[in-house]
Amino acid sequence: MGTAGTSRGITMGDVATHAGVSRTAVSFVLNGREDAGIARDTRERILESARVLGYRPNAGARALASRRSDWYGLVTEIVTAPFAVEIIKGAQDRAWADHKFLLIASSEGRPDIEESAIEKLLEQRVEGLLYAATWHRAVTIPEAAAEVPTVLVNCFDAEGRYPSIVPDERSGGYRATRRLIEAGHTRIGFITLDPDIPATVGRREGYRQALVEAGIDLDDDLVVSGHATADGGYAAAAELLDRADRPTALFCGNDRMAMGAYDAIKEKGLTIPADVAVVGFDNQELIAAYLRPKLTTVALPFEEMGERGIDMLASLTAGQPIATRQVTVDCPLLERSSV
């Protein structure tokens, strides 16, 4: 008999009997063989019989026969994290537009689960893999990923073996600082993430570039780490605002630190943005849009990175060359009310 379809066990043989044709003719039509010389009325009868009976092809068997599954795999640390959800949405929407489908596996940040997840996806004969991180950093990829085209999203391979899609941290830092300069500020404090991670390095370079271009002297005393937390942002902002020559604006390396900075500013009897302007980074919706005043921030382009990752994966699986091994995606400034 033929390949099993629905849970009712409808096969190609059943479709052939219903349509009054051979099983071979059914196979040609349902597998899209346009060169098989099947008459149009016969083709239509077969398709109608398949519809009436509720036949569905076995995707696994079809993948074995064609060596193409129409599936991509996506591995990420925590699929429920806000940023991961945006990456998944961008990737899934883009894959769907190409008539591809996404199998998603969460690694929970554990190397053993990550390796098993990739093995399971390969068992499903995915055509390629996206490996997405919830924060921008260098990663080590399990060896099995090399069996199919693999693209990294919001991270990069320390050994340079895999192509990647990452945010343009430098342009984001530049854009945030430039916005404060355009508002008339010359003493701009920078509350950074943990030192030496790519986001801190890139955003600091952008901050410095904007100041230099504007002819503003660099003052390292205005750069304080907030360690990526709201409490850290509060402490860093309080330290900066206690100075006699306090800054009139703060660029915070993420929105959580900006939230802490808001508290420090208000506790000192200052107002935002009249006394101190604030710009954040990340565009965490539950923070940026609900602070009062609403926070002007730079958005990390997670959804676009997911889309671009699928675009690159599609090129690789089609055997097409890619223009660059690392694509940087612009980080736009979202104007609200804090500047």
Rank of each mutant, 00 (worst) to 15 (best):
G2D: 11
G5T: 14
T6W: 05
T17Y: 07
V21E: 03
S22N: 10
S27P: 11
F28P: 10
L30F: 13
L30T: 14
L30P: 12
R33F: 13
A36S: 14
I38N: 12
I46T: 05
L47Q: 09
E48V: 05
A50W: 11
L53I: 09
L53T: 12
G54C: 09
G54P: 12
Y55I: 12
A59S: 13
G60L: 13
A65V: 14
R68H: 13
D70R: 02
W71M: 12
V79E: 01
A84P: 01
I87D: 01
I88H: 02
I88W: 06
K89Y: 06
K100L: 02
F101W: 09
L102P: 01
I104M: 00
G109M: 12
G109L: 05
D112T: 15
E114S: 08
S116P: 00
A117R: 02
I118S: 03
L122V: 06
E123Q: 14
A133H: 01
T134V: 14
R137G: 01
A138P: 14
V139W: 02
T140C: 03
T140K: 13
E143Y: 06
A144D: 09
A145P: 11
A146N: 11
T150H: 12
L152C: 03
L152E: 00
C155D: 02
D157Q: 01
G160H: 13
G160R: 10
G160D: 13
Y162V: 07
P163M: 11
S164P: 11
S164Y: 02
S164K: 04
S171L: 10
G172Q: 10
Y174L: 10
Y174T: 04
R175V: 10
T177H: 02
T177S: 05
R178Y: 03
H185M: 05
H185N: 07
G189D: 00
G189F: 03
F190R: 06
F190A: 00
R203Q: 08
G206H: 06
Q209C: 03
E213G: 13
E213C: 12
G215A: 08
I216H: 09
D217Y: 00
L218H: 12
L222C: 09
V223N: 06
V224G: 08
S225M: 06
S225L: 03
A228W: 10
T229L: 07
A230K: 12
G232R: 02
Y234M: 04
Y234W: 10
A235S: 13
A236K: 07
D242G: 15
D245I: 03
T248N: 07
G253S: 08
G253L: 10
N254K: 09
R256V: 00
R256N: 09
A258S: 10
M259W: 11
I265Q: 09
K266F: 10
E267T: 08
L270G: 11
T271G: 15
I272G: 01
P273A: 06
A274P: 00
D275S: 08
V278S: 01
V279Y: 04
D282K: 13
N283E: 15
I287S: 12
L291M: 14
R292Q: 15
K294R: 15
L295N: 06
T296A: 11
V298S: 04
A299E: 15
L300F: 12
M305D: 05
G319W: 05
P321V: 08
I322W: 06
R325W: 09
T328R: 15
T328G: 00
L333Y: 03
L334S: 05
S338D: 01
